[in-house]
Design a protein around this nucleic acid. Structure first.
Length: 965
RNA sequence: GCAGGGGUAGCCAAGUCCGGUCAACGGCGGCAGACUUAGGAUCUGUUCCUUCGUGGUUCCCAGGUUCGAAUCCUGGCCCCUGCACCA
């Protein structure tokens, strides 16, 4: 028997597939249905890790299964190169920060060569293709590979944006985005590619309430004291305004947005130095006035609160951070622990503090005072305790609080319900404005504090458009979406998905926005329609593709007219090759499955659907399916980090565990729709499971026997497995398919051998079919198995086996035998007989058998439940039964409950004419061998020749009396 | 805050949409045996409790619906994830 050297098998079959051109998909006249599948192309950001192979593998399994079930399969792939990652990577290479990482992952070229973003893209595109996809046996049509920064792709994106604009789906409005005074626009995200610090910062939206200081106090005009808060509804509880006692403040002249001239109405705002920049960046017009206003000149001054109209003093509070918002805050000591602590520190009395909200069931007293007591707050300097108290109290009051009568027209309302209303009212009346700020300090790569700046004419894709959204929702309802829970959620996601900023200035890769030079299309927005580009790419002339079909197309030929014709059949073809592309679109479209990670549920998939329904005139070309896969996480539960090189690099893992073992692992370890934890031990187990398959194959192929009585059973049992596997594959249930094929089939083969089955021809044909069924999941081993079983050609292009008719009686008989064998062992254990010398089985008497059969049949007619009264009536109508009245009564009494307990096979056996005695007779020598007894005797309990024994009387249908000695 | 996902036996994990055949697939780990003799083996059996009975108690907790609930409803506790110029 030849060895199973997975290390040799894998490249051997990959070479054969490549030689046969299996991965290449070209339109044919085969008349077969098509299957167009792809995964959300990976971003180019470094080496990938074992986690990424999960989704890639699923896609290949789908493609292979469909190829084997009569489909022409198109499985292309590409690379998402746009955005920041490649730029950041190249920058890090230049700074010398990537050398070790590159070397550790096997990069042998000159380091400085990767100092250019485009070189980074090219290099990793090659790594992904050769070291990951090809190494895992993925049959990707690499002739269609492209990146999002290819010139041809940019033409495609520009067409797309002109098309969206023509439909009115591009809008302009002000937007607020992170901005560095030196570098300009920056991205603030957890990868911190643009920034040095603050990657997890969130943008907070403060409501700035305009408290007023009368004219003549510090200026001859009225001065606005702008208090920034996240809880505008607490304005009714304001007792004073806090400023930093040692801080420097200044005046800024502020115009309302929309004001055009300096002479338009304006206001004087008092803000901290840091606050001044925010006003200039975020308001349309704001000019600071020269000179400082020292805090001490303000202390004690009285200001008027908006909404309540209350007059409150300005008080010094050392906890006030001048860097946060305006550097001025209002004090709500009844509900804000910080305010309460500072208020008490300032020696102000508790009894004047208003309570403006109540939580039902909360203890009596000021909520902030109680919270401070709970968290042992002593002074305003106890920052940690105050933060904890604040978080607890805010959450409690937001969720359960009701405003008190102190709150004017809002009294009695739940905070949760009325908060946004109060905010909107304040904004509408001009008593407040909004100011945005990061939740933590963000420092750019240039070393500057990153702020938030207003972009007055930001372009958005108008995803909030109602008719467009409705169209997308209606289509989504008809799509095949896995998992179901995402399909259920999709309408809500589409509703929730608002307008999205789609261009940005700055140093990143991507397509230039056709309507605004210097602006680059944002990376999500350039990845909404791309599967279609794989069809164009095949015809695009390039170095890698020097002689495309029909002469192909040059980049300059990718005009709007071309795309309109290719995708929508509009206009007239300028060249014959246009028709070729158009026919490909109609042939391969629509996309059957777009697979992507769970993060895409609220990122890529919604815009994918939206864009397709917007740009394609023919609804039959709209996407048909989405498959969402969850992640592979690290032991601690953290996502395996791409940038840090991954827990386990892919090439190493492939060598260690074997490619097929890893494929099986991905398919079987858990549902595709839950996160799985990467554990090398578990992966190693899957290697053993693949080995179990090959051992099982070895045993089966070693058989030399002829047809036998067990053949019918094996055929049926295997057919059943095939049917299960097929159904599972059809429903994208890879775990189900893998489970039944990998774990059940070896069991069947073993039982067959144990029962004396050894039909050489049957076993070879079953092994060959088994290989085909396994091929989508473990293709390399499957090909090898197929070849050894005498299969002709490549298993990967064979037809997926069709299950034969199942002989239920044969299955039921075998199941019964197993059950009896188990019962015998139980009896043996109870009898404490380690060694049996004799075994006699008493099968059911005919009358019991008849009654049980009748009960099962009647129950089946009655929907599974036995009508006892009717049953007894019919039974007792038979004089033979009346004669045995007592016995019959005792036996039938148990029947109703037993009928529901029988397995399906048992019910089938009882309802049929099968003779239990015959099954056991035929298996007598098997039982003798299994149990190590010299002889096994089988009698019907009502056979006059049966020897007398107490167990003879207990014989019942499917439960023979078992006498051991 | 907004939105979403989840809590199943020692561990991982299926089942939950469509309530019964669920003491609950499968794998791992444990235990016993076989085989072989030493390999991270393999094979068979077993692995909630059990006074072995058509026994008892289970699927985060507390209620409810039902003849019947891991599965449906209500409330609670705990964990995880995404949130817009990041991909």
């Amino acid at each position: 028997m030849a060895e199973w050297d997975f290390g040799a098998i894998t490249p051997k079959w990959q070479a054969r597939w490549a030689a046969a051109g299996l991965q290449h998909a070209d339109r044919t006249a085969s008349g077969k249905p098509t299957y167009f599948v792809h995964f959300a192309y990976p971003g180019i950001s470094g080496y990938l890790h074992v986690g990424h192979m999960r989704g890639f593998t699923y896609t290949d399994v789908f493609a292979r299964y469909k190829r084997m079930t009569g489909h022409d399969v198109l499985f292309p792939a590409g690379f998402h190169a746009s955005g920041i990652p490649a730029v950041a990577f190249a920058a890090e290479v230049k700074r010398g920060e990537k050398t070790e990482y590159l070397r550790a992952n096997g990069y042998t070229g000159p380091i400085e060569a990767l100092g250019d973003p485009r070189a980074v893209v090219d290099y990793f595109a090659r790594v992904y293709t050769d070291d990951y996809w090809k190494a895992f046996g993925l049959l990707i049509d690499e002739r269609r590979n492209c990146t999002t920064i290819d010139p041809g792709y940019s033409k495609f994106i520009q067409w797309q944006f002109r098309a969206l604009k023509a439909k009115g789906y591009l809008v302009q409005k002000p937007h607020y985005a992170p901005f560095c005074p030196v570098a300009g626009p920056v991205a603030v995200d957890k990868s911190e590619t643009d920034i040095k610090q603050g990657g997890s910062a969130e943008i907070l939206e403060y409501t700035v309430l305009k408290f007023t200081l009368p004219a003549g106090v510090i200026h001859d005009e009225e001065v606005i004291v702008p208090c920034a808060t996240l809880r505008p509804e607490t304005v009714y509880g304001c007792t004073n305004v806090w400023i930093r006692p040692d801080g420097e403040y200044q005046l800024v002249r502020v115009w309302a947005d929309g004001a055009v001239k300096d002479s338009d109405p304006s206001e004087l705002w008092l803000v901290s130095r840091d606050g001044q920049r925010k006003l200039e960046w975020q308001f349309e017009r704001a000019v600071d006035l020269p000179g400082n206003v020292p805090a001490r000149t303000l202390l004690g001054a009285m200001v008027t609160a908006p909404l309540s109209g209350k007059l409150v003093p300005i008080v010094g509070g050392s906890f006030v951070d001048p860097a946060i918002a305006t550097g001025v805050v209002m004090s709500v000591p009844g509900h804000a622990p910080f305010d309460y602590a500072a208020y008490r520190d300032a020696g102000l009395p508790d009894d004047k503090i208003p309570q403006i909200a109540k939580v039902e069931g909360a203890p009596v007293g000021l909520p902030a005072k109680l919270a401070c007591a709970r968290h042992n707050v002593r002074t305003q300097a106890d920052k940690d305790a105050l933060d904890a108290a604040t978080e607890e109290l805010y959450s409690e009051e937001f969720n359960k609080g009701v405003l008190t009568e102190a709150c004017g027209p809002y009294a009695g309302k739940r905070i949760k319900a009325v908060k946004d209303q109060i905010k909107a009212d304040l904004l509408a009346s001009g008593d407040a404005r909004l100011l945005r700020q990061f939740s933590e300090l963000v420092i750019s790569r240039a070393g500057e504090v990153v702020g938030i700046k207003r972009i007055p004419d930001q372009d958005f894709i108008h995803y909030a458009d109602k008719p467009w959204t409705e169209k997308a929702k209606a289509h989504a309802a008809s799509m095949a979406v896995f998992p179901q829970k995402y399909k259920d959620e999709l309408p809500n996601v589409l509703d929730w998905f608002g307008d999205r900023a789609c261009v940005r200035r700055g140093a990143w890769l991507g397509t230039e926005f056709p309507f605004k030079p210097g602006w680059i299309v944002e990376p999500i927005a350039d990845s909404t329609f791309y599967p279609w580009f794989y069809l164009v790419q095949r015809y695009l002339k390039s170095e890698r593709n020097p002689s495309p079909p029909m002469g192909g197309l040059a980049v300059e030929e990718l005009t709007d007219a071309f795309f309109d014709y290719a995708f929508n059949g509009r206009g007239k073809p300028a060249k014959p090759v246009w028709d070729e592309v158009r026919r490909d679109v109609q042939h391969w479209g629509p996309v059957d499955i777009n697979l992507g990670g769970k993060e895409h549920q609220t990122v890529h998939f919604p815009v994918y659907i939206m864009t397709n329904v917007a740009l394609l005139d023919d609804p039959s070309m709209w996407p048909k399916g989405i498959f969402v896969n969850w992640w592979v996480t690290q032991k601690a539960g953290a996502k395996i980090s791409k940038s840090k090189g991954g827990a386990e690099p892919i090439p190493g893992a492939a060598a260690k565990y074997g490619v097929d073992a890893m494929r099986l692992y991905y398919c079987h370890v858990g549902s595709p729709h839950v996160d799985i934890e990467w554990d090398p031990e578990i992966v190693y187990d899957y290697r053993k499971h693949v080995e179990r398959v090959t051992r099982s194959v070895d045993d089966a192929l070693a058989a030399t026997g002829a047809a036998g009585p067990m053949d019918a059973w094996l055929r049926s049992a295997f057919s059943k497995v095939l049917a299960t596997a097929r159904t599972a594959y059809e429903g994208y249930d890879l775990r189900g398919a893998a489970g039944t094929l990998v774990y059940e089939v070896p069991e069947l083969l073993r039982w067959y051998a144990r029962r004396g089955g050894a039909n050489r021809d049957l076993l070879r044909s079953i092994v060959a079919d088994w290989a085909k069924a396994l091929c989508p999941i473990i293709p390399h081993v499957a090909e090898e198995v197929f070849e050894r079983a005498g299969g002709k050609g490549l298993c990967s292009v064979a037809d997926f086996p069709v299950p034969a008719a199942v002989n239920d009686d044969a299955l039921a008989a075998e199941e019964h035998l197993r059950a009896v064998l188990e019962d015998i062992k139980t009896v043996q254990t109870l009898a404490k007989l380690p060694k049996l010398t004799g075994l006699t089985l008493y099968t059911t008497p005919v009358w019991k058998r008849a009654l049980a059969g009748k009960a099962v049949r009647m129950a089946a007619e009655g929907g599974g439940k036995l009508n006892v009264g009717k049953f007894m009536g019919e039974v007792m109508a038979d004089p033979a039964n009346r004669e045995r009245g007592k016995e019959v009564q005792a036996f039938t009494g148990k029947l109703p409950s037993q009928v529901v307990q029988f397995t399906q096979a048992q019910r089938a056996l009882l309802a049929s004419e099968t003779d239990e005695g015959a099954i056991l007779h035929d298996a007598a020598s098997f039982l003798a061998a299994e149990l190590g007894v010299p002889t096994v005797a089988v009698f019907a309990a009502d056979d006059p020749a049966a020897p007398e024994h107490p167990k003879r009387g207990v014989a019942a249908p499917l439960k023979p009396g078992i006498a051991v000695s």
